[in-house]
Amino acid sequence: MSEISFQETPELLRVWDVAEALDVTTRTVERLIREGALAVTEIGGSVRVRRDELNRYIAAQTRRRGAAA
């Protein structure tokens, strides 16, 4: 899987944006954040995920599954 390409998407993504990109619920994204699988940036009271962090997570998951096969 290649990097996610967001056209006209901000560098910092909301939890909802990440959930949509991964096709999971926001609760799943929140769990990934709590477990440390996704690093976040906090701005005020808002949590954001950097686009490159999302791509890193996806790449790590892809390699992990590829290595097990």
Rank of each mutant, 00 (worst) to 15 (best):
I4F: 03
F6P: 12
F6T: 13
Q7N: 11
E8D: 13
E8Q: 13
T9Q: 14
P10W: 00
E11V: 03
E11W: 02
L13T: 08
R14A: 14
R14I: 15
V15R: 03
D17G: 09
D17W: 02
D17F: 08
V18H: 13
E20N: 15
E20D: 14
E20G: 09
E20Q: 13
E20R: 10
E20H: 10
A21Y: 02
D23P: 01
V24R: 01
V24Q: 02
T26S: 14
T26F: 15
T26W: 10
T26D: 06
R27C: 03
T28Y: 01
T28H: 04
V29N: 01
V29Y: 00
V29Q: 02
E30D: 02
R31H: 07
R31V: 09
L32F: 12
I33E: 05
I33C: 06
I33Y: 01
I33M: 07
I33Q: 14
R34M: 09
E35F: 06
E35V: 04
E35P: 08
E35H: 12
G36Y: 08
G36S: 10
G36K: 12
G36I: 06
A37E: 14
L38T: 05
L38E: 03
A39F: 02
V40H: 00
T41D: 12
T41E: 05
E42M: 02
E42K: 12
G44I: 04
G44M: 03
G45M: 00
G45Y: 10
G45D: 00
S46G: 02
V49M: 10
R50C: 06
R50V: 12
R51C: 10
E53D: 10
L54F: 03
L54D: 00
N55D: 02
Y57E: 03
Y57H: 07
Y57M: 14
I58S: 00
I58V: 09
A59N: 13
A59H: 11
A60S: 09
A60E: 11
Q61V: 03
R63V: 04
R64N: 08
R64I: 14
R65Y: 08
A67I: 13
A67H: 13
A68P: 06
A69S: 07
